[in-house]
Structures are given as structure tokens and as C-alpha cells.
């Protein structure tokens, strides 16, 4: 290696250093420390932390609440990810067309993203209120259906939270799709029109494949969000009734900051990290190969 290239190497590393140091300090070190803590008991008052090996993991496997919140979280992900992405794409295609009031429509779709989750959760709380809430005014007063306690019943509470999340997220994803749509050269559409391709055929064979990089990005974000968004649970249900709406991260908060069982919270965090790490690997390793980048 000659001198100039060594210098370039050093230069490159120096440029990376600030970001790498911050990442190591605030992401990698905490992740490793969490792994380490998950092998110890929680220190309490005078009692220091003791090495307990895999005890915390054994306790987790035997914890019915853990399995319940994990199941809830998978349903939550299955409910929010496909619908919010499909909806985002649909909205983006629509507001990308030449229609009257387009700017206003785009703004309207994007508004839920701008509002703080805590505030909108408080509003949705009243939407779902039995008898006089917005939803009940529609289902009971207009359709004549019997009144239902939407957030207070185990079978419907999770679906209610899924709807709030989709409403909140779709507009955000729409922005990415909109940007991607506008980057597609109009000449492709013109060429397709000359060839006699229909709109659906054009969307399926040209637009959608060209949007795949965006879809991957949105998908990664949607997966992360489905494990990360818990603000509305704090406001609307606090995990109830009987843990029916508790998600993994909310349970971690409960265990860590209400029960002060930091060791068990670390154990649960490792599960969350493992889930997110695996999905990220799958997404990048598997899907990326099938994506066409221009």
C-alpha cells in the first residue's frame, strides 16, 4: 500500500468517526449492555445484581403475558403493514393525477402524520366512546346496529388500535410514494400509451416495479413502526382489557419502569431486537435482490 492510499484510508475513517462514535455510544453499546444485563437479576435497593444465566429467559418462556403480547404484536403488524402500504400507494397515485384541489387533498392526507400521536389518540378515544362517540353515532343511530363498547371488549380493542395506526401512517408513506411517482419519467407513460397498454397494465408492469425501492423502504419503516408505536396505547387502553391491546414495547415499558424489573425488561428487549434484526436481514437480503434500482 502506498502512502497516498493510506492517507485516503485515514481520511475516510476520520470522516466516518463522528457518526460511528455516536452509533457505538448510543446504539451498539446499549444493545450489548442490554444483552449483558439480561443474564443478571435486577438490582434492588441493597441487593446487587447477581449472575443468573438463562433464568430470565426461562421465566419469559413461562410468562403467559409475554406470549400474549407477542401474539398481539404479530396481529398488529399483520393488520397495519399491508393495509397502510396499499392505502398509501392508492392515495399517492390518486393525488399524483391532475385533479382539482390536488394540493388541498395532499395536505389532507398528510395531516395525520403531522399531528402528535398523543393528541390524536385522545381524539380517537372519543370517536370510540360507546353511545355518543362518532363511530357509534354512525353504527347505532344511522345503521341501527346495537351499541358496542369498542375499546372495552377484548375482541375489538386491537382492531380499533390498528385502524388508528393505519390512519396515522398511510399519509406518511404516501409522501414517499408521491416523490417516487414524480421521479418516473413521463416518456415511459407516453411510450406505453403508443404501444396500446392499458392503465392497469402500465401500473402493474411499469409503475409498480419502478416503485419497488420505495416499497422496500416503506416496508422496513412499517415493520419498525409496528413494533415501535405505542403512544396511542398509553392514552387509549393502557394495554387493557386484560392485556388484550398490550404490545411488546409497551410491555417492556411496564416491566422496566413500572415494575422496576430491569433484568426482565432487558430480556424482553433482546427478543424485540432479535425480531427486528431478523426481519431487517430478511428484507434486505431477500427482497433487495429482486428489486430493480435505476
Amino acid at each position: 500500500m502506498n502512502r497516498a492510499s493510506a492517507q485516503a484510508q485515514i481520511h475516510g475513517w476520520l470522516l466516518l468517526l463522528p457518526a460511528a462514535a455516536l452509533l457505538a455510544l448510543f446504539t451498539h453499546y446499549p444493545a450489548l449492555a442490554t444483552l449483558w444485563h439480561s443474564f443478571y437479576s435486577s438490582p434492588k435497593g441493597g441487593r446487587p445484581a447477581l449472575w443468573v444465566g438463562l433464568d430470565n429467559y426461562r421465566g419469559m418462556v413461562e410468562d403467559p403475558v409475554f406470549w400474549q403480547v407477542l401474539g398481539n404484536n404479530l396481529w398488529f403488524a399483520a393488520g397495519t403493514i399491508p393495509v397502510s402500504i396499499a392505502l398509501a400507494l392508492l392515495m399517492a397515485v390518486w393525488v399524483n393525477g391532475k385533479i382539482a384541489g390536488r394540493g388541498f387533498l395532499r395536505l389532507a392526507y398528510f395531516t395525520p402524520t403531522v399531528l402528535p400521536m398523543i393528541a390524536v389518540a385522545n381524539i380517537w378515544l372519543f370517536f370510540y366512546t360507546p353511545t355518543y362517540g362518532l363511530l357509534e353515532q354512525f353504527t347505532v343511530d344511522l345503521l341501527g346496529l346495537p351499541s358496542h363498547n369498542w375499546l372495552g371488549t377484548k375482541s375489538t380493542v386491537l382492531a380499533c388500535l390498528i385502524v388508528v395506526t393505519i390512519w396515522k401512517e398511510a399519509g406518511f408513506f404516501m409522501i414517499f410514494y408521491l416523490a417516487a411517482l414524480q421521479a418516473i419519467p413521463p416518456s415511459l407513460g407516453e411510450a406505453a400509451a403508443i404501444e396500446g397498454a392499458g392503465r392497469w397494465y402500465y401500473f402493474r408492469r411499469v409503475t409498480f416495479p419502478l416503485l419497488m425501492p420505495t416499497t422496500l423502504f416503506v416496508l422496513v419503516n412499517a415493520v419498525i413502526n409496528s413494533f415501535r408505536l405505542v403512544d396511542h396505547i398509553v392514552v387509549m387502553t393502557r394495554g387493557g382489557p386484560d392485556n388484550a391491546s398490550s404490545l411488546l414495547l409497551y410491555y417492556i415499558y411496564d416491566v422496566g419502569f413500572k415494575f422496576w424489573d430491569s433484568a426482565y425488561a432487558s430480556t424482553l428487549t433482546m427478543v424485540l431486537l432479535a425480531i427486528l434484526g431478523t426481519t431487517a436481514l430478511l428484507q434486505f437480503g431477500f427482497l433487495e435482490r429482486r428489486i430493480h434500482y435505476r
Binding site: 366512546t129 360507546p130 353511545t131 375499546l151 372495552g152 387493557g240
Partner: peptide, 8 residues
Amino acid sequence: PPGIIEWG
């Protein structure tokens, strides 16, 4: 009312 009744 049946079910869980919201405090707030």
C-alpha cells in the same frame, strides 16, 4: 354499560 368503561 357492558365491557371495560374508560376512566377518562
